[in-house]
Structure formats: C-alpha cells, structure tokens
Amino acid sequence: MEEIRRMEPIEGIHGLPEQVSAEQFAPSAFSRNRKKLMMWIFIISDALLFGSFLAVYTFERFISPSWPDRWKIFEPGYLAVMTVVLLSSSTFMAVAVEGLKQGKNRRFGFFYAVTILCGIVFLAMQAHEWAHFIGLGARLNTNPWGVPLFSGLFFMITGFHGFHVLTGVLILSFIGVLKLMGKVSDETIELAGMYWSFVDLVWVFILAVIYLL
C-alpha cells in the first residue's frame, strides 16, 4: 500500500492520473484541458448566481416607486479608485501568469505579490465604504432614503462579491505559499488567475448596475 501511494500524481487523491495520455480520448473542442474546462463551467454557474442577483436588483428597482440617488451616497472618485485597483490587479495577475508560462520566475513573483496586495487594498476600501454607508444610517432592512430594498440589495450583492474577493485573496496566498515550496503546478496557478479575473469581471457588472445606472 505504501509503495502504491507514492506512485500517485500529486493531485490524484483518487489513484487515477488526472490526465491519461491525451490521445486516448476522442478529439473534441473541449478536451484540451479537463481542469480548465471545469473551471469554465464553474465560472458559468457562479456568473449566473451574480446574474440572478443583478436581475433581482433590477426587478426590485423597477417595482419601487423611487430609487435613491447614488451620488448622494458614494463618491465618484473613491469608486474610480476601487475599480482601478481591482482592474489593475487582474492585469497584474495576467502578466504574472504569462511570466510563469515563459519561465520568468522573478517577473511572476513580483506581479503575483502585487496582485494579492491589490486584492487586499480593494477589500480595505470596500470595508471603508461599508462603514461609510452604515454611518449614513443604512441597514439591511432600513435606510434614510425610504427604500429599504436598496440597502438590503447593496449589502447582499457587494457582500457576496467581497466574499469572492476574500476567498480569491486567500486562495492566491495559499497557492503562493505552495509555489514557494514547489508543490503546485503552473496550471493550478493559471486556474486561480482565471478565478481572480472572474471576480474582477463581476465587479464590472456590479459597478454599472448598482452604482452607475
């Protein structure tokens, strides 16, 4: 039993290699990489969750007689900085992954660290924004603008997004440590990068639908 264990590939908890030689399978547009495919499908389902939330937001907004003016609550400058931080972090991540693929480890390390840093900055900014929002009197079930739905939806949707950023930061840090120990494949890092960019993608929609429209 001991000996067999050692034969297993690193991620094969189950005793089957993740990728038995590729020629064994019928060629398909989807078969290039199994893990990546699954990541895409996961992203679709997560995107649909946020899609449903934003659809709900729009619906509730349509059935409310009025909706608060967002510029009385949020600062355009602050919002712009938040967006820039998140979009940049996703750029850094892409550059880092590219560096990794080309074997430029120093470039990878630098940009990867900056990515995580940006994520933390974004989280801090969001926490500050929530504090500001709560300070104005907004709660899940009431707010000073007379549309309790607005603050409820705001907390729920940005909270869900923030939670995704947080998990992203944790995953990236964890993988980063594993990478330092040499225990993680390039592919896993690439997948983490996909997830990170996805979190960014969601923000693009949240920004437009909740803050700007």
Binding site: L49, S52, L140, G152, M156
Partner: peptide, 25 residues
C-alpha cells in the same frame, strides 16, 4: 442543472435574509 440552479441559490439566500435579517425582498 448548472444553468438553472443558481437562480434558486439566489432566491434561497434572499429568503434566508428576509426571514432572519428583516429584509423585504
């Protein structure tokens, strides 16, 4: 299933908030 279940997830989360945190979704 993958395309349809997220809508229920969202609904269930909102129902939970309505029940326990006083929202009115």
């Amino acid at each position: 299933g993958i395309l349809a279940f997220p809508a229920l997830t969202a609904a269930v989360v909102m129902l939970f908030l309505d029940r326990h945190f006083g929202t009115s979704f």
